[in-house]
Design a protein around this nucleic acid. Structure first.
Lengths: 322, 322
DNA sequence: GTGAAAGCGCTAACAG
DNA sequence: CTGTTAGCGCTTTCAC
């Protein structure tokens, strides 16, 4: 049987409330009593039951992180950073994978709602309306999607796309393509806009599946469009594209330069090493947790934090053929 | 203010215990009353508070998954499968990343212990002794490490290593190397043993860091050892090794064949595509959850489940030079 | 500075 | 079948 506060109280000859205070309100208890209680607790191997504490305090000291797909290499670094940061603030985290299914997302939020003080919603698939509604049940911080009036952490893909286009034009590329992602995607839209206003001669290819296969498939269109520089929706698409091009005898970067987005591990390991727009995923995780912590106390806050992206130049880009 | 069981009781004109039963013991309540209560609950947006329920039932309906490093591409598929399976059994999961630190591992287990019914310990870094001790506080299932008397899920790397060696000898390789991992690693030991008994002329190179850099560094030794076939500790090492070899003008698979272990995404994307021992990570996640579910009810069980691995032949292996 | 008592949301005997 | 009554482990007034 697990040891409770009552066992500690008995063993140290004080009342339970004193034990409780020894842990959660040290200044209200005599230093001597406190250290004695703590010693006894230690000896008994006492661990406060956080769930029971939550019942009276209203603070669970838990967060939820909800992602569309844990296996998507973009998320683990974000989760890792968020979890570590939460831990440093004495919070534990639930992680739930919705498998890209809005319905599952909603259910997960609901089962979690009473067990957490807040939820990190990463790239949610739910409608804005649904999210607004669920917000009544539990505080959110949204990552990677813009929803009016909600605390949000954004990674500035638009700015990243501009960086990428600038890099290509500096290398002498005159005609470039954006190999975009799924139809409704917020990210696709932001990239499209950035590329369109970057002042290059741009063609837009898509929609494509946000996967390696999507990239492979897009290779034919890229060749047909006779561009020399490409910005892909993400690294997976970029890697697939490079593969598709190479199958058709087009070399990267000698014939065509390719830039990805995300900076996943695989891109660094791939040949040629992928030039990519690096997303500050770890920073996003930390910031999101900070905002959540804040949202928990201060319902009013609804900030938007936009994190800068950066371009990592590796081997998949080079001077344009002349 | 969140809606509680009491609000539902009041609104539907029954006692709280009836509402409680309507949810957790349907057969004990009149069908009509039940459906009325459920309707009212639905209307009010009532969600049972699982933490409060846990206080009386002793079942939290939560699991913990503790991993050394979420960002290690080996874990996400395991976590994803475990989480999905747990969800299907109406369990939520905490995920904690220990950053390879035994001390953190212990702390995490302790803060989680009262909030979960059991913990999945993946590739733990703690000593056997420490784990035995913590076992008093919460049931474990250990994944990827053999600990006597504990429910364990193993992926048979030894058998995978045998498969790999057989594949190499079938391709005509006479002299092969095992580029092993960190010194104390259980996996390294199992691979070593399997390779040693596989009946080939084998050389053992290591220890090495279990990373791409470890592989790059090992390239010189591999060349010096004049082998034509290599089994690497894992895919990261294999990919690094291929890179290191190529920097030194040794081509894969033309000059040397390389096999990895894990079947991470990056290996499939890499050039040449990596031949590798595929670990049944998703299956391991599911099985582990099943065992945990069982361990929660039946303290006695201490089964070991060993999952078969398989060899995925891609492009990094070929016939030996003659 | 410490004890007593009430109560968080819920379930589990026990009556009726 | 449903209401009553205890409590789960902990915190928090309120007294002393």
């Amino acid at each position: 049987m697990p040891v409770t506060i009552r066992d500690v109280a008995r063993a140290s000859g004080v009342h339970v409330s004193t034990v409780s205070r020894a842990f959660s309100a040290p200044h209200l208890v005599n230093p001597d009593t406190r250290s004695r209680v703590l010693a006894v607790a230690e000896g008994l191997g006492y661990r406060p039951n956080r769930a029971a504490r939550a019942l009276t305090t209203g603070r669970t000291h838990n967060f939820g992180i909800i992602v569309a797909d844990i296996a998507n290499p973009f998320f683990p670094p974000l989760i890792k950073a968020a979890q570590a940061h939460a831990r440093s603030r004495d919070y534990n985290v639930f992680v739930a994978d919705t498998d890209e299914d809005p319905q599952v997302e909603e259910e997960v939020i609901q089962t979690l709602s009473k067990q957490v003080d807040g939820v990190l919603l990463c790239s949610p698939r739910l409608t804005n309306k649904a999210i607004e509604r669920l917000r009544e049940e539990v505080p959110f911080v949204v990552v990677n999607r813009r929803i009016r009036g909600m605390p949000t952490v954004l990674m500035d893909v638009g700015q990243g796309a501009s960086l990428a286009v600038r890099h290509l034009t500096e290398l002498g590329h005159r005609r470039i393509a954006l190999v975009s992602g799924p139809a409704g995607s917020w990210t696709s839209k932001a990239m499209h806009e950035a590329v369109a206003t970057a002042g290059a001669d741009a063609v837009f290819l898509g929609p494509n599946a946000p996967t390696e296969q999507g990239g492979i498939t897009a290779a034919a269109d890229v060749i047909a469009s006779r561009v020399t520089g490409v910005l892909a929706y993400n690294d997976l698409v970029a890697i697939g594209l490079i593969e598709g091009l190479s199958e058709r005898g087009v070399r990267v970067p000698e014939d065509v330069s390719v830039i990805g987005v995300d900076d996943i591990v695989a891109g660094r390991l791939n040949r040629p090493k992928l030039t990519t727009v690096s997303m500050p995923a770890a920073a996003a995780g930390r910031v999101a947790v900070d905002m959540l912590l804040q949202a928990v106390d201060d319902v009013a806050a609804a900030t938007v934090t936009t994190l800068e992206t950066s371009l990592v130049v590796r081997e998949s880009t080079g001077r344009a053929r002349t």
